[in-house]
């Protein structure tokens, strides 16, 4: 069996607003549009994914929060409705997803062997979080690939962002090893915003773009610092400053997603593809991808 590999890594933010604005038939709410910079960036990245041969998507989500270890989806099918607890007015999504249980079990096993506390999730009534659904829908609206969701263990809450960085790195390395042993071609998805301070009020029409802007300039400056490092192929440096960035901007990187993905990909020293940056209810959202193959790597924006 050929060695498995990571064929692409995607930073894919999941404000439910972008799914809402796309008006897919699965979502009950209706929008007049909004957040085009993000949506069009996503559309372009989704087209790139169509040109890549892969078997499964593996997504790390901040909205399946676990405190007792790292959990993996462990049943082949989940069909239900996901309602966002924070923005139920925008996101009530009927989903029907397939899980690559074999790959999930392999990752759970290898992570366990490396000393990480793990658990397979086998309750058929379990509801898939809106982070998984938003990122996966925007990257693959056809939903024609199986996925694996990995929960985010909240080390940043229990210990510190430094401990989170260490543990998420260990998990990333374990997942990369499991993927290699599986023989599969896998797309990794790190599902989160960058800076993450929200407005606590919402305009009467949520998609009214005349109201949308970053929460404050300091958040913006930090976000741009990260984008510059990503463009420059300095992912080790990004991960090294992650604790400070996370604390300064209350970033959603606190869940460990980007650290996990970068560790799994060996801290790329090549430029990230940048697909778009826009604020959503004050938070900073970047779509980016890391393509290990130089011949297909693009300068997008």
């Amino acid at each position: 069996m050929a060695k498995g590999e990571i064929v692409l890594g995607c930073l894919a933010p999941h404000p439910p607003h972008v799914v809402y604005a796309e008006n897919p038939e699965q979502n009950e709410a209706f929008a007049e549009g909004g957040w085009e910079t993000l949506r069009w960036g996503y559309n372009r990245l989704a087209r790139k994914l169509k040109s890549i041969d892969y078997d499964a998507m593996v997504i790390f989500t901040p909205h399946w929060q676990t405190y007792i270890g790292t959990h993996f989806l462990g049943l082949p099918k989940f069909k239900s409705k996901s309602v966002d607890p924070v923005f139920p007015n925008l996101f009530r999504f009927n989903y029907d997803i397939s899980v690559d249980v074999e790959l999930a079990e392999k990752m759970c096993e290898v992570a366990g062997e490396s000393g990480i506390v793990t658990k397979m999730m086998r309750n058929p009534d379990f509801r898939i979080d809106y982070g998984t659904i938003t990122s996966c829908h925007m990257l693959n609206p056809e939903w024609d690939k199986p996925l694996v969701t990995i929960s985010s263990n909240r080390n940043a809450h229990y210990y510190s962002p430094e401990v989170m960085n260490e543990q998420a790195s260990a998990l990333g390395i374990a997942c990369a090893k499991a993927i290699e042993e599986s023989g599969k071609k896998v797309v990794l998805i790190s599902s989160h915003s960058l800076s993450h301070r929200h407005f606590v009020t919402e305009s009467p029409l949520p998609e009214d773009m005349s109201r949308e802007h970053i929460y404050n300039h300091s958040q913006y400056v930090w976000d741009m610092k990260l984008v510059d490092l990503m463009r420059g192929g300095k992912m080790k440096e990004v991960i090294d400053i992650m604790p400070e960035f996370t604390e300064q901007t209350i970033a959603e990187t606190e869940a460990g997603g980007l650290t996990w993905m970068m560790a799994a990909m060996g801290y790329p020293e090549y430029p990230a593809e940048i697909y778009g940056y826009q604020s959503v209810i004050g938070t900073g959202n970047l779509i980016a991808a890391w393509d290990p193959i130089e011949a297909t790597r693009e300068i997008v924006l």
Binding site: W64, Q65, T66, Y67, I68, H71, P85, V86, F87, K119, M121, R122, N123, D125, F126, R127, S151, H198, V200, T201, E202, I281
Partner: peptide, 29 residues
């Protein structure tokens, strides 16, 4: 029940679902 947009109050007359906890899913629905 964390919220972001102010303070949310349950206003459905008969909310009904089968809930599963994020950590303790193995204890049942």
């Amino acid at each position: 029940w964390p919220s972001i947009i102010g303070h949310q109050i349950q206003g459905h007359p008969e909310p009904e679902w089968v809930h599963v906890d994020d950590d303790f899913h193995y204890l049942g629905s």
